[in-house]
């Protein structure tokens, strides 16, 4: 199982999403959310969403380990 964290405005779409999930990559987590949480899955498919595993920014395909914390961060480019 990995722990999930949706940061910033992504948390607005994460009501009812389990805090832990069984998945081998962040991309797979997104795929698992499509049916029950389509709005969140859509937000996660935006360009520039960052994935961090244990506070380290990684690729969506990075292999996850049991107990990892997977954080999703929406893009912030304004100024």
């Amino acid at each position: 199982m990995v722990k999930l964290l949706f940061f910033g405005r992504l948390s607005d779409y994460a009501n009812g999403v389990p805090t832990q999930i069984q998945a081998s990559t962040a991309a797979e987590i997104r795929q698992q959310l499509v049916t029950e949480h389509p709005l969140l899955a859509t937000e996660l498919s935006e360009p520039q969403v960052l994935v961090a595993v244990n506070k380290q920014i990684v690729d969506w395909q990075q292999a996850l380990q049991d107990g990892d914390e997977v954080a999703f961060l929406p893009p912030v480019t304004g100024g």
Partner: peptide, 12 residues
């Protein structure tokens, strides 16, 4: 960190 080829997000 931010891939230049991924394009601008829709929200600004």
């Amino acid at each position: 960190i931010i891939d230049e080829n991924a394009g601008d997000p829709t929200m600004n």
